[in-house]
Simulated assay, not measured.
Amino acid sequence: MHINKDTIIIGKNVVLVPYRKEHVLRYHEWMQSEELQALTASEPLTLEEEYEMQKSWLMDENKCTFIVLDKSKYEATGSETESMIGDTNLFFANCDDKLCAEAEIMIAEMWARGRRCGWEAMLLMFMYGIDTLGVKQYVVKISYSNRISANMFKTMGFEEISRSDVFQEITCSKIVDEAWASWLRTCLGDFKVQTGFS
Results as ranks from 00 to 15, higher is better:
residue 167 F to H: 12
residue 132 T to Q: 14
residue 23 H to I: 05
residue 133 L to I: 10
residue 99 L to G: 05
residue 178 E to A: 14
residue 107 I to K: 07
residue 192 K to D: 07
residue 63 K to D: 00
residue 49 E to C: 02
residue 106 M to F: 10
residue 148 I to F: 13
residue 167 F to D: 06
residue 10 I to R: 10
residue 5 K to Y: 01
residue 176 V to Q: 07
residue 47 L to G: 01
residue 115 R to W: 02
residue 52 E to S: 11
residue 18 P to I: 04
residue 18 P to A: 07
residue 163 R to H: 11
residue 103 A to P: 01
residue 118 G to M: 05
residue 193 V to H: 09
residue 25 L to C: 00
residue 73 K to L: 06
residue 56 S to M: 12
residue 123 L to T: 01
residue 37 Q to R: 14
residue 112 A to W: 01
residue 162 S to A: 14
residue 34 E to I: 03
residue 195 T to F: 10
residue 196 G to T: 06
residue 145 S to Y: 15
residue 159 E to G: 12
residue 3 I to E: 08
residue 177 D to I: 03
residue 196 G to F: 14
residue 27 Y to W: 14
residue 81 T to E: 13
residue 85 I to C: 12
residue 72 S to A: 13
residue 145 S to Q: 15
residue 124 L to K: 11
residue 131 D to T: 09
residue 177 D to F: 08
residue 190 D to K: 10
residue 46 T to N: 11
residue 178 E to S: 09
residue 56 S to Y: 10
residue 162 S to T: 13
residue 79 S to F: 01
residue 53 M to S: 06
residue 62 N to S: 09
residue 107 I to R: 12
residue 100 C to V: 15
residue 6 D to V: 00
residue 17 V to S: 03
residue 99 L to D: 13
residue 113 R to L: 06
residue 183 W to R: 12
residue 109 E to H: 10
residue 4 N to Y: 01
residue 3 I to G: 00
residue 75 E to R: 13
residue 73 K to G: 01
residue 197 F to I: 05
residue 22 E to F: 13
